[in-house]
Amino acid sequence: MEEEKKQPFLQVKNVTKRFGSVEALRGVDLTVYTGEILAIVGDNGAGKTTLIKTLSGVLRPDSGEIMIEGKIYKELNPRLALDLGISTVYQDLSLVNCRDIATNIFLGREPVRHKFFVDKRRMVVEAQEFLQQLDMDIPEIHAEVGQLSGGQRQGVAVARAIRFGGKLLIFDEPTAAMGVQESAAVLSLIRQLGQKGYAVILISHNMYEVFELAQHISVMRQGKVVSTVSTSDVTPSDVVALITGAGEIPN
């Protein structure tokens, strides 16, 4: 019963992407459901980041389809992806280091006064409130992002994605540079997002994180999703075996 209620928010069908002679994606299939956290795991170079970049519109796939809420797209662009409700925390964070925190959180979506002037005061107030809500430790709201620690910078990137998050939130290794406390805060945030009804994609190398948060795990190897399993059906060592290609799908 429960399973039937869930609608796929996004379906990827046979998506390919080449970079010169390198086949980064070799026909990827993936389904993401609303209200569910899907973990994508795989070795370095398996194509995880390339895949999510096609979903966020940063990269154009060479072939294949992306179906979002029943509509088929051959390719997306960042604007379209955002408008369709896909927000992404990129691995490189995509922050403008020489600008302050509020400016980064509102980048591309600055509130304006009199149609013309960026409402900086409102941006600062809202950014501060929002970061507090998220329990993120930001010492000085006017600081340039470049002056923050790695974890704090990730916090800003996560805050930006969630602040304007539509329906699908993608996290590409969101806690890689974070300390224990910060990553605990972000992980509980991701769990809450799943419970609130967002579709969530989490890319992670951390099996503990994956098993703690995700309902399903898609394993990528050499540019393909080789299997998708329910977290409750497998053990971390099964997943590691799938990543390295040592094991096959347990039935």
């Binding site: 966020s56 940063v58 960042p78 604007r79 992806a81 955002l82 408008d83 992404t88 990129y90 995509s94 922050l95 403008v96 280091n97 020489c98 600008r99 400016t103 980048l107 591309g108 979506r109 600055e110 960026v118």
Partner: peptide
């Protein structure tokens, strides 16, 4: 704002949906 963002990190601005 976008002038400075272009200089700071053009790709970040593009990913934020700005032409």
């Amino acid at each position: 704002y976008y002038t400075l963002a272009l200089g700071g990190n053009e790709e970040a601005l593009r990913r934020a949906g700005v032409a």
